[in-house]
Design a protein around this nucleic acid. Structure first.
Lengths: 116, 116
DNA sequence: TTATTATATCATCCCATGCTGATGTAATGA
DNA sequence: TCATTACATCAGCATGGGATGATATAATAA
């Protein structure tokens, strides 16, 4: 099945790719508790400013978060409650398959510095 | 928070990475309707045999699918109903944010040949 | 206006990982 | 046993995309 020349499967894979990076996931998890400015996200995740900003623009473009200017700052929030739902559900699943994921060698090292 | 030296966020990112590739996602979607042999998956997805086999071993190692020998064939199935839940929920979310995902330039081209 | 704060963008590097083709191995049939 | 079918594994290649540092832009303060 195609949508505007892109397969639905391809779009869904893209959607999941938003969640599949440690840095982006840290950002999304941080936003579960409510909106945050870029500066707050930088503090919480301990990622560099440009890195956070790049990931945020990615997440915004993909529709997972939305942004709003507030004074000099820009506030980000999850764009849909189902984003939080996916995070929660994956957390549940993780408790079942954690050992497998841990032992899975195909996907290797952590490149993020957010949570060592 | 760490588990055996790995961050929970890192494990969760790994889990999502299982869903974040077009080929693996095609395989998982195919398995939603019930168990399939490797050969059947090759037919349905139109991926190469070695490619399917590699992705399946990845998905099995990560705990997303389980396998069972049946004669000369090996039957694969989703290991947990929540895997299907994640697929369903992401499908819902996709209908909301499809345009954004489509326009998101950061994640580019389709490399998979499974569904052109 | 000029300075400062807050965020965005861009070029560049480089490594993880997906794909292919060849080969290995297990299960059944002749 | 030998052949065939079904699947797994491995080496090698190519590239998507994540990190960094420098620079640009927007918003407020002085």
């Amino acid at each position: 099945m195609l949508v505007a020349g892109k397969s639905v499967t391809g779009l869904k894979a893209k959607l999941f790719r938003g969640f599949s990076d440690t840095s982006r996931l840290s950002i999304l998890e941080a936003l579960r508790d409510g909106p945050l400015t870029v500066g707050q996200i930088v503090q919480i995740t301990a990622l560099s400013q440009s890195n956070v900003s790049n990931h945020l623009s990615c997440l915004r473009d993909c529709g997972l978060v939305s942004s709003e200017q507030q004074g000099r700052s820009v506030s980000y929030r999850l764009s849909d409650p189902r984003v939080g739902e996916l995070l929660r559900l994956s957390g549940e699943l993780l408790t079942e398959v954690a050992r497998g994921v841990y032992e899975c060698a195909r996907y290797g090292s952590e490149r993020s510095e957010g949570e060592k």
